[in-house]
């Protein structure tokens, strides 16, 4: 922010480090390679900046000019973790204003939102200043630009956990689900919030099941909401088959002629669970599940034919296929 040289757009009116009077004392260090493979045809600017970067690292110089140089280097390649790491050492050594650095990294994040290094740099800065006040907004903007950006979600979850910022998160996520009910990252985040704040108490579980069923009704082929429903049931000791709201919902949807593969798949698991509990008409349940698997394999979901036949076979052999909540929770 202070230096004129680093604020110039690289490549336009670029002054080479080798031509800068204040760098005259440094001997540039070129990359150590004799017979190069995977050799990149670096631009002259890139070579210049990194030759000087190698030189100051080898000297261990942590100065204002080194800070400017690292800025130029990360602009050329924001994925260079060595530069970021060195930059952090310099920031610390010079006791720099870290809020200024948070602004700088924010700008780079918006240019490079799918880069591990830029988010990690931000995370370390947030730890250093011990102040998460900008994080929800920064991740919100990144998520508005790409609602499934994994890095942005990961940063948001980290900051929420680290600083206990669960408040208002359900609202945030609800709006995203409203906007795109198929946004699986949003559903995952919803699970994260509840699981780590209130927990899935009986009352919350009931509300969540209602919320999910309502969203399934809107788009019955939407895997995200069905998966979330299965996630909820992991917290319910009665399992799938013991939850009347769910079984009745499924049966009524099925009777209406709905053939969503996720609906049929859930009914298959309900049948399997009932049979394994030793109900009187276990044979009938197994036969129904088996028939549904065959319908999935041949008509509804043919790409997963082998899987549905495997599930049918397991049903007959009484092997549990719905999952094991004790291992996921």
């Amino acid at each position: 922010m202070s230096s004129a040289s680093s604020d110039e757009e690289l490549g336009t009116e670029y002054t080479f480090y080798r031509d800068k009077p204040d760098w005259k004392d440094i001997e540039p260090l070129s990359q150590d390679e004799d017979d190069p493979v995977v050799a990149i045809d670096y631009s002259p600017e890139f070579t210049d900046v990194f030759n000087y970067f190698r030189a100051i690292v080898s000297k261990g110089e942590k100065s204002e000019r080194a800070l400017i140089l690292t800025k130029d280097a990360v602009k050329l390649n924001p994925a260079n973790y060595t530069v970021w790491q060195y930059r952090r050492e310099v920031l610390k050594e010079l006791n720099k204003d870290l809020y200024e650095e948070l602004c700088f990294i924010e700008a780079i994040i918006f240019k490079q939102p799918k880069n591990y290094q830029v988010w990690q740099h931000r995370r370390i800065l947030v730890e250093w200043v011990n102040d998460p006040k900008y994080e929800k907004n920064v991740t919100k903007i990144a998520i508005e630009k790409d609602a499934k950006n994994y890095h942005a979600w990961q940063h948001r979850q980290w900051v929420i956990k680290r600083f206990n910022l669960y408040e208002d998160e359900l609202n945030f996520v609800e709006k995203l689900i409203e906007l795109d009910v198929r946004n699986n990252s949003a559903w995952n985040h919803r699970y994260f919030i509840i699981n780590n704040s209130t927990g899935f108490t009986e009352d919350i579980l009931r509300k969540e099941i209602d919320f999910t069923l309502e969203n399934i009704r809107k788009a019955t082929e939407n895997e995200s909401s069905w998966n979330y429903l299965r996630g909820l049931v992991l917290h319910n000791n009665q399992g799938l088959s013991g939850n009347k709201t769910i079984t009745e919902f499924c049966e009524s949807l099925y009777s209406s002629g709905n053939k969503s593969s996720f609906l049929l798949s859930l009914i298959v698991d309900i049948c399997g669970e009932q049979a394994s509990k030793g109900v009187v008409d276990a044979d009938v349940k197994i036969e129904r599940g088996r028939a549904l698997c065959e319908e999935l394999a041949t008509k509804i979901d043919p790409i997963r034919k082998n899987y549905w036949r495997y599930i049918a076979e397991n049903l007959e052999n009484g092997i549990k296929t719905s999952g094991d909540s004790s291992k996921v929770l």
């Binding site: 995977v38 990149i40 994925a79």
Partner: peptide, 17 residues
Amino acid sequence: DSLLNLSKGYEALDASR
């Protein structure tokens, strides 16, 4: 070809050689 020479565009992968 890429085992030997990579264009300038690969600068972004300079830390992934």
